[in-house]
């Protein structure tokens, strides 16, 4: 079986389970909506939003709901001990990682479809006018986040303290994604026209992060997931 086919099988399995259970994405989206609402309480004063806050709020919401999704997606594998079964499959280990990454990225994308319009409405920012570049930034950021997140969540899946540890391990590593995503989004919202040069700069940093971390994850997934 080819590498990509094995990866796609793992991803499509995750997506099919999710389509039937509708558990992870619903929880993530609901949580994302609540986070945006909480930020609105913190940053909207006398009906006025804090300028520039919207971009940061969108990306922090993505990060927080992403952790929730990562934890739940791997808990599901642990409950039936299906992760061990997956790892026993006669396919390259790295293809299982890529499959998981694709699955998580889809869950996060679905959540972003809820979070971005909510931020646009509550914080009065024209995300709709820049939908395509915003989608590009979000896609790159999501892939980078999911690349690190699915590796760490996979490593932690057999650990008792996984829910606490995942947050502590993941956030310092994904700081560049948050900075790049938020700054790129801010550059999109500059008036009167988006600062294209800045947007490109952040797209490049996001792409650099994605490439570095996917390569490193593919390289380390096998030794990290092998139990002694």
């Amino acid at each position: 079986m080819s590498f990509l086919r094995a990866a796609w099988l793992v991803a499509s399995k995750d997506l099919r389970v999710e389509l039937r259970a509708r558990e992870v994405v619903v929880a993530m989206s609901l949580f994302a909506a609540l986070v945006v609402l909480l930020f609105a309480f913190a940053f909207v004063k006398e009906g006025q939003t804090t300028p520039d806050a919207a971009a940061g709020i969108l990306w922090i919401t993505v990060a927080l709901s992403g952790t929730l999704g990562l934890g739940r997606a791997f808990d599901r594998e642990r409950e039936g001990d299906t992760l061990s079964a997956l790892l026993m499959a006669p396919v390259p280990r790295a293809s299982i990682y890529v499959g998981k990454l694709i699955g998580i990225a889809f869950f996060m994308a679905a959540t972003e479809l809820v979070a971005a319009p909510l931020v646009a409405i509550f914080f009065d920012v024209p995300f709709g006018a820049h939908a395509l570049p915003l989608a590009g930034l979000l896609a790159l950021g999501t892939v980078g986040y999911a690349a690190v997140g699915s590796l760490f969540a996979g490593m932690l899946s057999r650990n008792r303290g996984r829910h606490v540890l995942l947050n502590i391990l993941l956030y310092p590593i994904i700081v560049p994604v948050l900075i790049a995503g938020a700054r790129g989004t801010q550059a999109l919202l500059v008036l009167p026209a988006p600062d294209t040069e800045q947007v490109w700069l952040w797209v490049r940093i996001l792409a650099m992060f994605d490439v570095a971390f996917i390569i490193l994850s593919l390289w380390t997934f096998e030794p990290l997931m092998t139990s002694d």
Binding site: M155, L169, I173, P176, F209, A212, F213, L224
Partner: peptide, 17 residues
């Protein structure tokens, strides 16, 4: 192992950060 993975990611992350 978990910590070793983290250290490796931290070192690669440093220049990107």
């Amino acid at each position: 192992k978990l910590a070793s993975g983290l250290a490796l990611f931290g070192a690669v992350d440093a220049p990107i950060t």
